[in-house]
Amino acid sequence: MSERQDIIRIENVRFAYGERPILDELSLTIRRGEIIAIMGASGGGKTTLLGLIGGRLIPSAGKVFVEEQNVPSLSKSALYALRRRIGMLFQFGALFTDLSVFENVAFPYREQTDLSEDMIRTLVLMKLEAVGLRGAAQLMPSELSGGMARRVALARAITLDPSIMLYDEPFTGLDPISVGIIGRLIKRLNAALGMTSVIVTHDLNETLRLADRVVVLSAGKVYCDLSPDEIRASTDPFIRQFADGLPDGPVPFHYPANDYVGDLLAS
């Protein structure tokens, strides 16, 4: 595999929130054009990883290369130049609540380009058509269902035709139909726009249908890096607990605590 095909390269990254270590010497390479799913227990550093790729978080050690640029060392203007080629879908969409659907999608055009009003209108309607919501252009975010809001946010994230899309829990809180719609959109957009997609998710079913590669994080490191078929066939207890949704296993059900009986009698 040649270097040029690695669009994101994370090398020996450490990150901690205060005293709590999140990522520990994590290394990961993401190739151009693939859809990669990052899975792992809550609080396991998945969203942190997206923050590092987007340059919103700075690692305490290690390097994060995106398109051959070391993100933590970029100046603000260089970072903003890079971010114009990165789209991000936030967990609950993060639509601007004071702007209509149309204006939300038009926002990147108005801020980043000198396009004419006619051109912006055409482009916005095309993006909204791509997510099936051209008819909702004049609604306000408060009038949308959760699934619709997520689709509008997706349309907004792809306005500038990014080469990398970051998805933070794109399926959380959605009904099964919306999950299917978003999943199909991710796959279709990835192919149609030639993007690379990094998806942080808990939804294993949708992930296995969607991703080229599944990376499971544990204890701040990459636990395994497998194809969907390999995940399905795996007998590893940690992966099985994940795949089958077992409450207890290598990831304990109980938060670490004192001895139960001792605790109850301690009064």
């Binding site: 130049a81 971010r83 993060a94």
Partner: peptide, 21 residues
């Protein structure tokens, strides 16, 4: 509330400085 709902973060990720905007 814009911060709590990630609107400032989204703006920042769209390469628009929330401080200026």
């Amino acid at each position: 509330l814009m911060r709590a709902t990630d609107q400032l973060a989204a703006m920042d990720m769209m390469a628009v400085d929330p401080l200026a905007r």
